[in-house]
């Protein structure tokens, strides 16, 4: 799994941080998403998929089948 984030789409809701805090964080100054781990270990994949699905601006893209 490879993650990319679209900072220009991000609205700083922070839903991804709630769901997958090992993978996502927010910048202190404006809340925009910070990708901590672009290729997370398999145990994170389910949470990352959920984070991508609930992101309210569809700013998280996943590629790769793993």
């Amino acid at each position: 799994m490879k993650i990319t984030v679209d900072e220009a789409k991000c609205c700083a809701a922070g839903q991804c941080v709630l769901i997958a805090p090992e993978v996502f964080d927010q910048r202190d100054e404006d809340g925009i998403v910070l990708l901590l781990d672009a290729e997370p270990a398999e145990e994170q994949h389910a949470a990352v998929r959920e984070a991508a699905a609930v992101c309210p601006t569809a700013a998280i893209h996943l590629s790769g089948t793993a």
């Binding site: 922070g14 709630l18 927010q26 404006d30």
Partner: peptide
Amino acid sequence: WNIPKQTRLTAR
């Protein structure tokens, strides 16, 4: 207002 991360943490 222009402080999303801290807002989320406060709300939580």
